[in-house]
Write a protein that binds this DNA or RNA. Structure first.
Lengths: 203, 203, 203, 203
DNA sequence: CATGAATGAGATTTCATTCAT
DNA sequence: CATGAATGAAATCTCATTCAT
């Protein structure tokens, strides 16, 4: 699905692709641990077990590694997109989404990575676009659930599905950041969050 | 109250204090324009019209300038704290708060600064604590309005005031970030936001 | 005696002189603890409890503080000069000198200071000259004892008093340095040293 | 023996090793001319004809260059170790050693370097250890000659070979320093020195 | 594809000293 | 005599990137 027209990968191509991933993953860990700007290209190469020069055979530069990571983030959204695409009561789907997305952001590293990318997104247009694109996709999926909820009479009719979808997602993100910073559990945050969202949607 | 016992500042001390502010403000602008890590100490000094060496007479290092800025951010919250402390209908106060806080965050530079500080807050404990302290103060003020709203029967009784206060503020922050990144107006975001919050609080 | 023609010091002059000493002593401790080059003028001022600017009212610069310290070192030699000037058996005087001079250099700080000054003496002529002058004075005194020893038939006649004096003093210095570096006691070193010197002088 | 199992050096590795030496030698000259602390890393790089950044590909820092130089100093002792290991009359060997070691220290640059290293040795443990190790090796070799001299009845039986070895070497070092500082010839110093040592060892 | 030496600009911070107050 | 802000050069070291091998 990702590349319907590509020729089959040779053994060498596969090895190369694996190297890319190794580097990308090493960078990911570095960025999470020390931040994008505090991470040097040398750190990434060392962590990936790759020579400094070779890293540049796989990526044009440090920035591009982050771009790849931001793009990779999109794939992380797949489970949530799937979940939101399922049929069934909007209320139920929403509840499950809240739970699982909050659960995803219960891992500090994912929150940190999000902040790191957000921070770069402001000044680097390509990162910004990727970030927005990822968001829009998730928002669209959630908005469609919202819409069904409205149509089914589960949610209030005055709700703007897309606005609400944005707000719900942002709410989880922002409170996940609070949880990380204040070192409180996401579980305890989630309770209040669900109450808040449920109330906002109800008829 | 802040310094009831301090001796009167000499002309020279005042000049020194002014220099500090000059440097701090120059740094503020640099950080907003180019980001904390992309800003060099030289840039700050140049912008402040101060020699590089002299900057270090006023601040121990670059990090400490950011700390001072983060502390300064607290003062920016005063108008909102005042507003929230006013008597009157909780609904009305809340509405005004949403409007004015959103208006504050309609200026991209304030959003960017918030992100920049948030990003540093993760790895620098002192910044983190300042950030949390600022937040808690605002949250407490908003929570007290919430509580009054509940007591007055304007808001639903099942609401947890503090949880809700956190969430409302995070909601504004996060959607202000979206507004900046997607280059949409905060005004348009605010409409949906108010609707969402109002609904979440209603009986 | 040091300054027969000077007018009596006013109270103020005395206070000033005391300040100078305070600074000089603070510098001394800094140089011993951290080395001349690793010590900043700020460190000295801080340690002396004096403002940075004021230090320059008392000394033209950092270098000159070291010069003063090197000059001060000369005064430290007075006890040994006195000892060497005493009448009595050369053998006996020499033995006492070896003991007390070695005892003086048993304090690591004095050895370290000597090294620090020696090191600067190479490239700074004024320090060099002071160092040499201090040495010559001590050597002359010791040489005169040697000479008496020869005349009295206690030491061998073939001895060159001045050469021997130089060598004896250098021997103590150098082995004191070894004691400091190898962290062995000067006492244990002294035993071998006395044996060696005694043998070298004997008829 | 030093690297019996090492793989053969590629042309490139050899070039790299040469660069290291170039840098080290440039540093050596800088340190001698201007002193360790007065020498900047830039000076070394410039003198070595190497870019500043590249220097750090070969050495972790300025300190480590000095460590390497101190280690190199050990190799300079090889001729003396060889000389001392030769069979023959202890008196004769000792005399030759005194001559050649004093001759070595007749070059002011070697004396200066020794002072520079000594000075650093006090506060930098790794330099200190290297210095001591170098010394011990030379002392051990000289002590063994002394011992033979005693056994052969050339030197007095009451002599402690190791103590004496230390003292003799320190004597040369310290008087070489005097020669440099007072700008007198090592040759003239050596005469008195030999007389002194000979007398100290004789039966 | 792989290596790591090479680059030189740039990073932050410290230096000894001066000078207006 | 006393202060500490001001200076700008210099300190050491890191940076992302290039390139010859």
């Amino acid at each position: 699905m990702s590349d319907g027209s590509s020729k089959p990968l040779s053994k060498r191509d596969r090895a190369t692709a694996r190297r890319r991933e190794t580097i990308r993953d090493a960078a990911l860990m570095c960025f999470i641990e020390n931040g994008y700007h505090q991470t040097g290209v040398r750190d990434i190469a060392k962590r990936a077990g790759v020579s400094l020069g070779n890293l540049y055979n796989h990526f044009p530069g440090k920035h591009d590694v982050l771009v790849e990571i931001a793009a990779l983030e999109r794939a992380e959204m797949n489970p949530f997109l799937d979940l939101l695409a399922r049929p069934g009561s909007a209320t139920r789907i929403l509840d499950r989404f809240l739970t699982s997305y909050a659960n995803y952001l219960a891992k500090p590293e994912d929150v940190i990575l999000t902040i790191e990318i957000s921070s770069e997104a402001i000044r680097k247009p390509d990162i910004g676009e990727l970030f927005i694109a990822n968001r829009e996709e998730l928002v669209a999926a959630l908005a469609s659930v919202m819409k069904r909820g409205i149509d089914d009479g589960e949610f209030r009719a005055s709700l703007d599905p897309e606005d609400a979808a944005h707000l719900v997602i942002e709410l989880i993100d922002a409170s996940a950041f609070r949880a990380v910073l204040s070192e409180i559990s996401m579980r305890s945050v989630l309770r209040g969050l669900k109450d808040f969202v449920t109330a906002a949607l109800r008829r």
